[in-house]
Amino acid sequence: MKEFLFLYRTDYDQMQQQATPEQMQASLQRWMDWLGSIAAQNRLIDKGRRLENSGRVVKKDLVTNGPYAEIKESIGGYSFVKAESYDDAVEIAKGCPIHSAGGSVEVREMNLM
């Protein structure tokens, strides 16, 4: 079994426009269900973290306010998952609720640092 990182990317500007508390709640529920189903298969290493919207970008000694803006989609969070192969990991990622919000999941195999 290999270990993979899922990076959740979304367009923040778009995301923040709507979202009533009810919608937030429903979205949270979808995430919990999805992560729960991965955990039920004993594939979830760590549900990971959600990142706050603001941030900084360090380039040599130059610090700018982020998050990273070169591309529209910012990283909103990440999780750690076990899978047999990239194909297997991609199958799991397809179930991610982020797709309904127009976002994407970047699937990356991990190695020890």
Partner: peptide, 23 residues
């Protein structure tokens, strides 16, 4: 971070959401 030795490379610094809330 040694990554910054590479021309054009960056490190993004993001605070992790505090409440134990899903993504």
């Amino acid at each position: 971070s040694p990554v910054l030795q590479g021309e054009g490379n960056t490190v993004e610094v993001r605070r992790i959401a505090k409440r134990d809330e899903m993504h």
